[in-house]
């Protein structure tokens, strides 16, 4: 474990807790894309298939349970909670899951480290995580206004993966044969997708004005 990875995990943890707290306290999911949340639940499910078979550390297992639990409870809140669901904007959140899931699945079948079920599922989760934020970014552009909690949520999500890139660079130089080029490429693509959001987020923060994404 290195400081970059710990900071990345904490940032990621904080992002999902911020979202869960927002939905739980104000009982609203305005501006949140259910599609993205469902994709994240799928990412964690396919990534943590080994949660009960391979024990890495208590930290690893606890964090996996938190990510699985929080992502599924966010989906439950938006889908089932009688108050929260009323604030879900399903007419705007229309991104088709399968536009992302199917290409990632096909790519994982053809480009992976090893052609086993677990490995393909793990690779699929990496590709899917890279693009899972798209429905949320599309929704933010459509609704044009971003309440600052949602802005912080997306910012923290992007920051976590950027910290992981620093972690991969650090591990590449400190650990022999630490090579996971698929992880690295997926991670860089994911961070680049956030880049334009970061740009507008910093612009609005610097000019101290409301965050507006260009149409």
């Amino acid at each position: 474990m290195n400081i970059f990875r710990l900071a990345g995990d904490m940032t990621h943890l904080f992002s999902v807790l911020v979202l869960l707290l927002k939905i739980h306290t104000i009982k609203s999911c305005a501006g949140i894309s259910l599609k993205t949340q469902e994709l994240y639940a799928l990412v964690f499910t396919t990534r943590y298939l080994d949660i009960f078979t391979d024990f890495i550390s208590l930290y690893n297992t606890v964090m996996k349970l938190i990510f699985l639990g929080s992502s599924f409870s966010i989906v439950w809140y938006i889908r089932r909670h009688k108050i929260v669901r009323r604030s879900y904007d399903k007419d705007q959140d229309t991104f088709r899951h399968y536009f992302l899931v199917i290409p990632c699945l096909v790519l994982a079948v053809f480009i992976n480290h090893k052609f086993t079920f677990k490995e393909v599922m793990w690779t699929f989760s990496l590709y899917l995580e890279a693009v899972a934020i798209l429905p949320q970014l599309v929704l933010l552009q459509r609704t044009r206004n971003i309440d600052n909690l949602t802005g912080q949520y997306v910012f923290l999500l992007g920051a976590y993966r950027a910290l992981y890139i620093l972690n991969w660079i650090y591990r590449h130089f400190t650990e022999p044969h630490y090579v996971h080029w698929i992880t690295w490429i997926a991670g860089v693509v994911q961070t680049l997708l956030y880049a334009d959001f970061f740009y507008y987020y910093f612009q609005s923060w610097k000019n101290n004005e409301k965050l507006q994404l260009p149409a």
Partner: peptide
């Protein structure tokens, strides 16, 4: 032999 690369990252 192909060492099982442990997925120790989240």
């Amino acid at each position: 032999e192909e060492q099982e690369d442990i997925k120790d990252e989240l």
